[in-house]
Amino acid sequence: MSAMRKRRFNPDRDVKEWSGPSIPYDILKEAFVALVAVGCLVLLLAVVFSSPDEHAVTLKTWSTADPVDFAQTAITQLDGTSPVATYGPPYNSTPGAAQHIGFFEPAQWLGTHQAVDTAKDFVLGPLQTLPGDAAVHQAVSEYEAASSAQRQAWTSAYEKAVADAKDVNGTLQVPPGPYGPVGTIIARLTSMAQSGALDGALSGQGQFYNTNYTKPLLFIASGNYLADLAGHQHLQGDQWGMMNETGNYPGQAWLWLYTMWYQVAPMNSSSNADLEVWGIMMVLTLVLIFLPFIPILRSVPRWSRVYRLIWRDHYRRLAQSRVARPQSVSATVEPTS
């Protein structure tokens, strides 16, 4: 206190502590009443509105609903052009893929920690787990034994062909072309996905227990199917989707500022948008934490005069006491009997 008194009194930092009258106030009773009231409110909301639970998308539902999108995604996993294959850290070390602001490149510095090899993990590996399918095992062996130039020729040819693929009653039909074993590989992967076996192969990772869904999620998120479903629910990033919930449920409205930055220039067209928005939000969070130290900002409450309304009884009494005792500003407070 004595140290503080030596500084000039700043109304936005310092207070004259209250030594005036007090009132009885039962904080535990208040808390109990609030507990019951909020309990009733939550109970009412739960009974009336329940909660949303949209089924998860599986590789099975995706490949069944849209085998063409699945096959078009699968070939990019095989030839290494998918969003995951070219993601960079933490999934792989694609040069220049990590987001950066100037020299600040934290993802690059930390490197690959959740290694994903899309061709091996998403396509070739799962196919090798199929029992008794000589054709696909031969196709995989042929693909793996080929030179990289040969593989690229096959996958390029397949990418061209699959662009015109058709979904005939749930079966993938790809126009013929010089794509060698790749046609068998993607066709079998699609039927494996439609049977549900690919979900098991990617989720299980060769173990009985598994709680890590990184690989199947990355595969599913590479296609258009999941994104289209999200777009219909207004959940896309450019739809302020971070705030939204499925259906008509309220979502995370408290993320309004975070999601807003993605909508404005230059972040709305930047390839480093995530890092830029995170940087802005970190700075703003620090500003909020250290608001009491920041001149001008910490004066806003006093200038706004909203406090005059919150403490209006106090200011009314203060005004009355000044009218009653105009000289009392510097007088001491008189005790009553």
Binding site: V48, S50, P52, D53, H55, H234, T246, G247, N248, Y249
Partner: peptide, 17 residues
């Protein structure tokens, strides 16, 4: 789906948003 359940919602917020 959820509304078929016993304690489902009285007002369905699960429709088109």
């Amino acid at each position: 789906m959820m509304h078929s359940l016993l304690l489902g919602s009285l007002i369905d917020l699960g429709g088109t948003g």
